[in-house]
């Protein structure tokens, strides 16, 4: 229960950061926090206190469910791809406008 509520707090932290931080890089970092929290949440739901890794040779006790682990690899790859793209975009935005502040970026849009 404690672990679960900590993970839920971490999800909340990611969303809170996205909803409050004004810096673009911080937004990307909080997106990664959110994603890590989601991965943790998924794996925590299938945690077995005495579970073993789902590999045939080591199957002693009860093996944990292998499906979440397989799905989470996919999610990690997605997260890496999105982060790479977003960071490259922010480099280009910085080159263009000299700032990474969402608010200043928005004001510039109004002037154009």
């Amino acid at each position: 229960m404690l672990q679960l509520s900590l993970i839920l707090l971490m999800i909340g932290l990611g969303l809170y950061g996205l909803a409050t931080s004004r810096h673009l890089i911080k937004s990307i970092i909080f997106l990664n926090v959110l994603e890590a929290a989601v991965i943790l949440f998924f794996l925590r739901l299938f945690y077995l206190p005495e579970g073993t890794a789902p590999i045939i040779t080591s199957l002693g006790g009860e093996a944990v469910d292998p499906l979440p682990q397989a799905l989470m690899i996919t999610t990690i790859v997605i997260g890496a791809s999105v982060t790479a793209l977003a960071l490259m975009m922010s480099i280009k935005i910085y080159h263009q406008y000299g700032t990474l502040d969402w608010k200043i970026l928005l004001e510039k849009e109004d002037n154009q």
Partner: peptide
């Protein structure tokens, strides 16, 4: 976990 090795020949079920 029950059928994985017979069906896919992979010991690592992930």
């Amino acid at each position: 976990i029950h059928r994985g090795y017979d069906e896919t020949a992979s010991k690592n079920l992930v």
